[in-house]
């Protein structure tokens, strides 16, 4: 049990997916203008990564390994993720319109969020079993959500600041991310 807690904290804070491993940077930089949209994006990511890491782990253990096809993992995982996202979108639309309203726009974007594929491949590389894979998935995606919500909060404040010319736009966002990454480095002594 304590192992799982450590894995969860490790994935969420110590090896934060965005700030120390650079997975999923595109939505992190792109959809972080407002706290509200950032939070919805984070929620959608938690949803998809958790399901995707569970499904990818099952497929790897029960389809690819018995058939000795591990080298096909990249192709299989990306197709599974793309199909899964489509399926989740259709399912939510039918069964829970409220949730679909909140997450709908973000779901198609997540297909190629490298964090999803990254976590699935990471689980395989570290030889996690099913439960560890799911825990790692949850931890990673929660870490993503924490990072993107903090980022959005800072950017909302930055909006009113007088930023000198060349730093406007992308550079100031990158510097903010750098400061956040330094702060998150502080977690490295936690485990």
């Amino acid at each position: 049990m304590s192992e799982m807690v450590l894995l969860l904290i490790g994935a969420a804070l110590v090896n934060n997916v965005v700030l120390s491993q650079f997975y999923g940077l595109c939505p992190f930089l792109g959809v972080s203008k407002q706290v509200k949209t950032a939070a919805s994006m984070g929620l959608a990511v938690i949803f998809v990564i958790t399901i995707a890491s569970a499904v990818a782990s099952l497929i790897y253990d029960f389809v690819l390994t018995p058939l000795d096809l591990q080298f096909l993992q990249t192709i299989v995982f990306i197709l599974v993720i793309a199909g899964l996202v489509q399926f989740v979108e259709m399912f939510l639309k039918k069964s829970s319109p409220a949730l679909y309203q909140a997450l709908g726009v973000y779901l198609p974007l997540i297909t190629t969020n490298c964090a999803v594929l990254g976590v699935a491949l990471q689980n395989v590389q570290n030889e996690y079993n099913f439960v560890s894979s799911v825990v790692n998935g949850i931890g990673t995606s929660v870490g993503f959500t924490i990072a993107i919500v903090i980022m959005a909060g800072i950017r909302e404040r930055n909006e009113n600041n007088n930023i000198i010319g060349p730093l406007k736009g992308m550079p100031i966002v990158l510097f903010t991310a750098a400061l956040m990454a330094i702060a998150f480095n502080g977690f490295s002594g936690l485990i």
Partner: peptide, 8 residues
């Protein structure tokens, strides 16, 4: 809009 998240 998207900071180049043109993946998808």
């Amino acid at each position: 809009g998207c900071a180049g998240d043109c993946c998808s």
